[in-house]
Nucleic acid binder design. Structure first.
Lengths: 202, 202
DNA sequence: ATGGCTGGTTAACAATCGATAATAAATACA
DNA sequence: TGTATTTATTATCGATTGTTAACCAGCCAT
């Protein structure tokens, strides 16, 4: 139990200077969540305002389009925070599905309860600040890729900067996250292989 | 002076319950900024950690690619907050340029000073919370468009939901923000006109 | 082993896009 | 007003993508 909270405790201490011994008010309200591979954490229509820190595993946020295709919004893994922005920001039912791609372990807190705690213990405020900034940075990084890079460049950047993650996830989800089809990603991979061989002198 | 702060005062009062008369500690640190059409607010390489509320006008965040082309990251207008996420989040020099497309009026605060104020006056914390959530919502909305929609659908959604903004901005910036060329946007417009005529029975 | 199932590749064709260039329309400005 | 500049459209061509379908490889479970 306390083992899996350790990372968050360390993070919070770095952010706020609060010692783990004084973090009880916050962590008393958190829940450990374990997800099996393929298990949904948040479903379309859910209204629960939960926010989670990913201790281990990978989660995929996606929606099912009218034609049945799935569109992946993003992937998040160890060290990231995950939440349905529809419920947290807009107080609306979730429009996306958040599903574990691997057996995963989360530290969860209800956002309403977090706000209560923050009213009583504003010293924890740096934590909220941190995860909002982190989620914002992640989102903007995604937009950057779409605006500045072609699909091919986008894929190159992903395998360069997140090779370990790409290797843990089926390509079709990577393709979907890139806004292209799996067929197209396969062709991009083929082109890059050719270029790679040429660059190697073969 | 106090006229243009009014919107923010009202916003803060709604968020926190603080009365305008007690907002002096915060607004004493804000600056009014006026930008001419075409004037840069933040330039590539800037390190100043400024954050601004847009009272009036439209700003465009973009970068100049190696080949000289410009890629528009996003547009922001009245009621939005704008900041270089490189400097605010990552403490790095700005990689993007933020330029006014219209004569604009901003309420600016330095993020370091804001943090000082928030240490002394945590009652203003809801304001930081609000603009972080708002910027996050804006960013995620952008990603949604790229992942779920084709360029044509993306344009349709934009003109439906932000017709007033589209009308104030040259199409080439809309195209760039959509991740396509102005030529391609022109073709999309043509296709939609045809479809529109067909739907009208012409 | 032998089927299913999922995920990845390949092929064929139509549609769309990028690049470039020429032209037209709109805007700015002297 | 007339001219220059910017912006938008159209055309052409090669490249890329989407769609659909077939095929193959790995994996799982019986």
């Amino acid at each position: 139990m306390s083992v899996s909270i350790n990372v968050l405790e360390t993070l919070l201490q770095e952010l706020s200077g609060i010692l783990p011994g004084n973090m009880a008010p916050l962590f008393a309200m958190t829940t450990q969540v374990k997800l099996e591979e393929g298990e949904a954490y948040i479903r379309e229509g859910d209204k629960s305002r939960k926010l989670a820190f990913i201790e281990k595993g990978i989660l995929r946020a996606y929606s099912v389009k009218p034609n049945g295709d799935e569109a992946t919004l993003f992937l998040r893994w160890e060290g990231h925070f995950i939440a349905s922005h529809d419920t947290i920001i807009h107080h609306l039912p979730a429009r996306f599905i958040y599903r574990a791609l691997e057996p995963s372990r989360l530290v969860e807190i209800n956002y309403d309860k977090l706000e209560e705690i923050l009213r009583l213990h504003p010293e924890f405020e740096p934590l909220r600040n941190y995860f909002l900034l982190k989620m914002l940075a992640d989102a903007l990084e995604g937009i950057e890729g779409f605006v500045l890079l072609s699909p091919e460049e986008r894929y190159q950047k992903i395998i360069e900067s997140k090779w370990d993650i790409v290797n843990r996830v089926p390509d079709k989800y990577i393709a979907s996250m890139m806004g292209i089809t799996p067929v197209s990603l396969s062709r991009i991979r083929k082109r890059l292989h050719i270029k790679g061989k040429k660059a190697d002198g073969n």
